[in-house]
Amino acid sequence: MRDFTYQYGSLSDAGDVRSENQDAILCCTGEKNIQNQQNDAAFFLVADGMGGLSYGSQVSAYCTDQFAAWWHEDFSQMIQAGRDSDTDIKELLEQEIWDINTQIYQFKEREGCRCGSTLSALLLYNGKYYIENLGDSRIYRFRKNNLEQLTKDQSLAAQLVREKRLTPEEAEDFPQKNVLTMCIGMFQIPQSGFEMGELKNGDMFLLCSDGFYGCVEEADVKEILRRYNRQNDKGNGILQFAVEKLRSLIPEGGARDNVSLILTEVRKG
């Protein structure tokens, strides 16, 4: 049973100002075998590291390395064992987040340093999407010409907007708008946001760090996604081109932070 296939394009760069890229991305696709049936699956992750010296890049790379191992080992073994219910998948994702957070938190306490990372993860499997999010990297879904943010920013500004103590317009100029209320390594107990839902043919998902979405207008992003939606008959290449078009929305010299993008499209198998 191969209901859906997944194609993607991705990029990550230091931006136009910073000398080091502390973001890390992960893209995994492949078949997972359950009860002698083949299911295509995909996993994508954006991690935006933070911290002095090279700690930010080390933490974000650790997140992607650990989830790469999770994809090839833990997730594969769970599927082969027939444990692929929504509850099983949510628990497995959150256990990995817990394990990564524990290692980063202990490293931070031991070294007396400031470090952490956002983490936005998207799993596509068996006709559904599963999202785990910590921090303010984002995941959007583009469906039927509608662009919807599926994650909730875990930042002080976003929290004040949700509490109606700031308007969205006031949040744009809020002096502490980049202060996070949660990320990998911040607290001993990570509190991630979880979302899941049904996939539909032609769905596109965009994962990005704040270095991208903070510099562009959603209307411009939506127009590029509309232009390339369900036109990737030549494989991943057209989506890679779409990602590069998205990156070009940032004016030359305007990327003051690291920029990371992953764009994936769901197609009937």
Rank of each mutant, 00 (worst) to 15 (best):
L26D: 02
A242Q: 10
L207N: 12
K164D: 10
K144S: 14
N146V: 15
R2S: 09
E111N: 14
I97N: 12
D220T: 06
M182G: 03
Q66P: 00
E169M: 08
P175I: 03
F142E: 09
L11C: 13
E195T: 08
G51T: 13
K222S: 12
R256W: 00
Q22P: 03
V216P: 10
R18E: 06
D74S: 13
D153L: 13
D13I: 00
Q231D: 01
T64S: 09
F241Y: 09
I189K: 14
D86M: 07
K234N: 12
I262L: 10
L166S: 11
S85V: 03
I104H: 03
K222M: 10
K164W: 00
F44R: 04
F75G: 01
S60V: 08
F187W: 00
V266G: 09
A68Q: 14
Q22G: 00
G51F: 01
A157F: 06
I89R: 06
Y129E: 11
Y125K: 04
C63Y: 02
Y129R: 07
E265R: 07
E195K: 15
S76T: 14
G82D: 01
L207F: 08
Q231A: 06
I262V: 14
Y213R: 04
G9F: 02
C27T: 15
K234E: 10
L180S: 14
Q66L: 03
E132M: 10
E109G: 05
G185K: 02
D86A: 13
L123A: 05
R143M: 00
T5H: 06
Q95P: 05
T102M: 00
E265I: 05
R267G: 07
I131F: 09
Q66G: 05
D65E: 15
R83G: 02
K177L: 11
R2P: 00
S209P: 07
A68Y: 04
I89P: 08
S209K: 05
G269Y: 05
